[in-house]
């Protein structure tokens, strides 16, 4: 249960650079009214960011080659089906984790 001053400073440095991008937009929109085109652009951010995060995990890049990460793709199929049919975050996560555990167990 120890740490050092340099480690603490490193963590504080990381905390500051993480905190600023999270907070600045909240201060910005209080003082500036965003133009409609920006608001429209922002309305696409949820779908784009969420699909990018999912896709990132389905690809595998190594030695300048990008391929499908087959293990993740395999586990992703039942996960997606459950998400579409149940529309439940909880059930989707459970099925996803169990599928991945089973795949790792058998492969």
């Amino acid at each position: 249960m120890t740490t050092s001053l340099s480690m603490l400073l490193l963590m504080i440095g990381c905390a500051i650079v993480t905190w600023l991008p999270r907070v600045i937009p909240f201060m910005l929109v209080r003082n500036v009214k965003l133009p409609d085109v920006i608001l429209k652009w922002l309305s696409y951010i949820p779908i784009c960011i969420l699909s990018a995060l999912v896709l990132e995990s389905l690809f595998h890049s190594e030695d300048n080659m990008v391929t499908l990460d087959w293990l993740n793709v395999l586990a992703f199929i039942p996960t997606l089906i459950v998400a579409i049919y149940t529309k439940s975050l909880f059930k989707t996560v459970i099925v996803g984790v169990l599928t991945m555990a089973l795949i790792r167990f058998f492969i």
Binding site: L50, V54, S57, T79, T92, V93, V97, M100, L102
Partner: peptide, 22 residues
């Protein structure tokens, strides 16, 4: 590690994406 728990994150993003599409 590697009990399938790491996949929870992917599953969660997938579900949130679907919920934003309905």
């Amino acid at each position: 590690e590697s009990w399938g728990l790491d996949f929870a994150l992917v599953a969660m993003f997938a579900a949130l994406l679907i919920l934003n599409l309905v």
